Amino acid sequence: MMYAPKSGGVKRYLMAKRAWLQKRRPDIQHSLVVPGPRTQVEGDGLVTIAAARLPFGDGYRMPASLTKWATILQTLQPQIIEAGDVFVPGHAALEAGEALGVPVVGFCHTDAAALAALHFGEWAEAPTFNFWAQAYQRFDHVVAPSRHIASRLEEAGVERLTVQSLGVDTELFHPSRADRARLFKRLGLSPDIRLLVFAGRPAREKNIESMIDAVERLGDPYRLLLVGAGKDARYSSQVIVHDYERDPIKLAGMIASCDAFLHANENEIFGLVVLEAMAAGLPVVGPMRGGVGELVDATVGQLARVADGPGLAEAIEALFARDLEPISKAARHRAETRHGWDTTFEGLTRLYSQLIAQRPATRPLALIA
């Protein structure tokens, strides 16, 4: 259900997987089932199921009909199903998997309990965690994109668990796309400005206010460019807001043209946009906690002890007190050598082949995500 016109990392993962399978594993038939304005097959295995738009949800939709989702999944006759959440699509996947006798994998993209505590208060964390835990315990296998979320799943009693990090398109996100002079001219910035960037959804968990607070504390010559994330942000003279960028090439060029990437979500499951920034040759400032803390260290950026305004400001200053050129090169090198999509999808297809082998079937290999 985290697939929407302006959605971020989950959608990029799903689309990257489709492209990789078409190129590297044409023997696998892949269907993608997502919410949409109407129920239809849009072509090339993309199926949308009618769902109401969430108010203030920036295009996200809330699936409501468990029966409809389960029926469509069964009609597609997959040999394995990957569920991207534990709500209606996830429960429908479990029902369809049981009816078909095929394995169902839960790919954990969200810490629902942490989000509940953030949005509704601490009282909401325990009941949400219990629901989340019971749901993931039902899957034949669970995939976690980071050790951070894997530890949360283990705490929830999930035993059949694999950690498989996500990847990045290192050809799309590349330092060669940088045109700093052009971007600075378009934004009306002088060459001596130190430009940090964040790209993502305008969601509370992204902790955008702390990023704004950090650059306000620092003052000149620091500026923060918010791409997509500035819709509901408190505006400041230190902040430049840019609309959601649909063109991936333009987005890659914009990121590569900045001086450093800033991230402030301490509960990030993985942080795909961090990899994109690293692939573009940007040092990263981010929190020690969560998935971002697993991707960033002193070699490729600067970690903040606390992801509030003062903590981020301290880390930003510490980064720019160093020589950025070797850090930029190290960030690019790490993205290239550790985080190509080949590693991610080769790992997933091996795992899924093993799960299918445990339940022999005669149909052609098919995967639903």
Results as ranks from 00 to 15, higher is better:
107 F>T: 13
4 A>N: 13
153 L>K: 05
104 V>P: 06
330 A>C: 11
114 A>C: 13
114 A>N: 14
189 L>N: 03
256 A>H: 04
114 A>E: 15
45 G>Y: 09
145 P>T: 00
138 R>L: 14
83 A>K: 02
328 S>E: 15
294 E>H: 03
263 H>F: 15
139 F>C: 12
36 G>A: 08
193 I>K: 15
60 Y>R: 15
318 A>N: 12
263 H>Q: 14
114 A>D: 15
231 K>T: 05
306 V>P: 01
264 A>N: 04
272 L>T: 01
268 E>V: 02
126 A>R: 14
29 Q>C: 07
246 R>W: 03
295 L>D: 10
119 H>P: 06
109 H>C: 01
99 A>E: 14
17 K>A: 08
89 P>L: 03
343 T>M: 09
274 V>P: 01
65 S>C: 06
19 A>I: 10
158 V>M: 05
130 N>M: 13
167 G>K: 06
328 S>D: 10
353 S>K: 10
189 L>S: 00
351 L>M: 14
30 H>K: 00
272 L>I: 05
367 L>H: 08
181 A>F: 07
235 Y>W: 06
42 E>A: 12
361 A>Q: 15
44 D>K: 11
157 G>F: 03
129 F>V: 11
228 G>Y: 02
139 F>T: 13
48 T>N: 07
367 L>W: 04
201 R>I: 02
219 G>E: 08
285 V>S: 06
215 V>L: 01
31 S>N: 09
315 A>H: 03
51 A>N: 12
320 F>P: 08
47 V>K: 07
151 S>H: 15
331 A>R: 01
268 E>T: 05
69 W>L: 07
283 P>N: 02
2 M>T: 12
298 A>C: 09
303 L>C: 09
206 K>L: 13
228 G>P: 02
7 S>K: 14
363 R>G: 12
338 R>S: 13
243 D>M: 00
229 A>P: 04
292 V>S: 04
367 L>Y: 07
203 A>T: 01
239 V>A: 02
346 E>P: 09
284 V>S: 07
87 F>M: 14
45 G>A: 10
28 I>Q: 00
93 A>R: 03
105 V>I: 14
41 V>C: 10
82 E>L: 05
204 R>C: 09
366 A>C: 11
245 E>F: 01
25 R>T: 02
162 T>E: 07
195 L>C: 09
358 Q>C: 13
186 R>W: 08
14 L>C: 14
64 A>K: 15
255 I>S: 08
37 P>N: 11
82 E>K: 07
345 F>A: 01
214 A>V: 01
189 L>D: 03
103 P>S: 13
104 V>I: 06
135 A>P: 08
169 D>M: 10
113 A>K: 11
